[in-house]
Amino acid sequence: MNFDDIKSAWSNDNDDNVVVPSSVDQLKTLQLPVEKLRSNMKIEFYVQLFSLILIGFLPRYTYFAPVLIIPFYVVYFVAVAISVYYFFKFHLFYKQLNTATLRSKDRLYALYYEAKLSIEMYKSYAYTLIPFALLEMAMHMASRQDSKMKAVFQAAVTNQAIAITMVSVFLAMLLLLMAITTFWVNSYYGKYMKQIGKVLEEFKEAA
């Protein structure tokens, strides 16, 4: 056998098993990593939106010290403003994914780098929100009249050692939540990013 033999056999290869659908509506897709990213992004968007709305009602369904309500909403609206900015960015990327076609190699490169960038942006968004979440949580805990935390917060104002411990705990929680976020993003999107990376690597080697 040689390549001419293969070419000859190739040109006679039977294509009867390709079933062309009778309508394009019958086509199902979700096999490309970008499509999967897109679908995961959509799900996450709804979950995050729902969570943000829910947090906004926190002072209504749990006790909040009246003095902390305004600080709570200041922090909350800053977090909402940041979210709106990121949601807008993600929306642009999402739209781009929807209209993106694989008609050219350049388009393919652009799309895949864009996907990579968006995941990184998503991580930075999540990291940005963590301190806000912790602040809201701290305010919530400080509000509870029966809470031991209230006494601790009050003690921290005069006792430096307690204040340092509290800041350390805050930072430790921050780091822990960042690690959890990274783990979450990597397990939810990482698989597809790995696939994308593999394709990009091959392109790079071939160029």
Binding site: V18, V19, V20, P21, V24, L27, K28, T29, Q31, L32, T101, L102
Partner: peptide, 8 residues
């Protein structure tokens, strides 16, 4: 893959 190609 056939489906995906036709879809794309």
């Amino acid at each position: 893959l056939t489906q995906e190609i036709i879809y794309q």
